[in-house]
């Protein structure tokens, strides 16, 4: 099979999987799902590491390092923030307990 066709096959199948796995999501979870998907594309960090680690040009190195920082913010921040949101859903069964850190200073 032609190389490009292999890639195309993977792409098309992934499209269907991507739609199928989230097809039944309830509107309650739209926000965390969006945030989680957002974190997953932070995997561009892997790409940034590959190009930065193989370059010999100084300017390219600098640009690559910037890309790594941005991608790491996307990936790590995305997963942490999603987890924070989802914690709220899990904790709801327990008796009332006010968490100071989560409620202070919210008024802008």
């Amino acid at each position: 099979m032609n190389d490009a066709v292999v890639w195309l096959t993977i792409f098309v199948l992934s499209v269907f999987v991507g739609i199928e796995v989230i097809a039944k999501v309830s509107s309650t979870l739209h926000t965390p799902l969006m945030s989680g998907a957002n974190a997953i594309h932070g995997i561009i960090l892997l790409g940034a590491i590959l190009v930065t680690g193989t370059t010999e040009n100084t300017l390219a190195l600098v640009v690559g390092l910037v890309a790594i920082v941005l991608a790491a913010v996307n990936m790590v921040g995305g997963f942490v923030v999603t987890d924070r949101m989802l914690q709220m859903f899990v904790r709801r069964k327990r008796p009332a307990k006010v968490e100071p850190g989560a409620t202070e200073g919210g008024v802008r």
Partner: peptide, 28 residues
């Protein structure tokens, strides 16, 4: 974007992850 980047960099995990997000994100 990440999916296309995966193709350019010859990296399958970028392609799959990017496409999953692209497809599910569009649907969402």
């Amino acid at each position: 974007t990440v999916a296309a980047g995966g193709y350019v960099l010859d990296n399958v995990v970028l392609l799959v992850a990017g496409t999953l997000v692209g497809a599910s994100g569009t649907f969402l």
